[in-house]
């Protein structure tokens, strides 16, 4: 798995590792059973005429099925539900953070347009920070994304944050992450979106707080200078939902 820069990615990684153990155990049982039978019960071995219809014979398949259902599946379902509900789908908690950063992303073939609300906290105003493929965020605070697309379906993929979400035209997707480590991390498109799908790469740079504040001020001022009320296509932002 790629480098994990996020606060909560380790939960996913842990569940993946637990599953890997289950997977290896199940495979080992299957392969061991099969290989042993093939080696020991070949042509020279006399076959027993057991049709497996006795009640005792059914204990084995049902027993393994029960183990897999309650132990393996149960564990996956419980942990996954907990992680999704408490963390990854828990937008109210992220929204409640006083310093949470909100970003709107408008995907198109083949780039990520992104917009920060600027000092006034409102989207689609003159002080919005507008960037292309180059997103910057502060470390250790929740980053909330609202995403949409103008053309086809894309998928906003943050491998170093263990998450992704489809970005669908006519629909708003939501995602939140929190970085734990500063650095540059790649944004990928994970949904086939046309000829140059493979080039739809962005960067998410995680900065220390002061650096982010300086960058935001500068970028906001620049965007304000370039602001043109008449250019309606440039104001693709929406009210935060």
């Amino acid at each position: 798995m790629p480098f994990d820069a996020s606060l909560d990615g380790h939960r996913i990684d842990r569940l993946v590792h637990v599953s890997l153990v289950f997977m290896i155990v199940l495979l080992a049982v299957m392969i061991g059973w099969m290989v042993y039978a093939c080696l020991r019960h070949g042509r020279r071995h006399a076959a027993t005429c057991d049709d497996g219809n006795s009640h005792r014979a059914k204990i084995l398949p049902l027993g393994i099925a029960g183990f897999v259902l309650f132990i393996v599946d149960g564990n996956l379902l419980m942990n996954s539900t907990h992680d999704m509900e408490q963390i990854f789908w828990n937008f109210p908690r992220a929204e409640a953070h006083p310093e949470a950063v909100r970003i709107e992303v408008n995907a198109h073939q083949w780039a990520w347009d992104a917009r920060y609300p600027g000092a006034d906290g409102k989207f689609n105003t003159a002080d919005d920070i507008v960037v292309l493929n180059d997103l910057r965020v502060p470390v250790n605070v929740p980053i909330l994304f609202e995403l949409s697309s103008v053309d086809v379906i894309h998928s906003f993929y943050l491998p170093s944050f263990r998450t992704k979400i489809d970005v669908v035209p006519g629909q708003l997707s939501k995602l939140w992450v929190q970085a734990q480590k500063t650095g540059e991390y790649e944004i990928g498109c994970a949904q086939h979106c046309g000829v140059n799908h493979y080039k739809m790469r962005g960067l998410l740079t995680v900065l220390p707080h002061e650096e982010f504040r300086d960058w935001a001020q500068e970028a906001s001022a620049q965007s304000a200078r370039a602001y043109d009320l008449a250019d309606r296509t440039a104001h693709w932002g929406w009210d935060w939902k």
Binding site: M30, H41, R43, G52, L60, L69
Partner: peptide, 26 residues
């Protein structure tokens, strides 16, 4: 989705038990 593992395990266990103590012709 996860509950599909129940019939899947029954299939596998039955297949492997069919091999078990057979006189396998490869």
């Amino acid at each position: 989705t996860l509950s599909i593992s129940v019939p899947a395990v029954i299939l596998f266990a039955n297949w492997l038990s069919t091999l078990w103590r057979g006189s396998i012709r490869f």
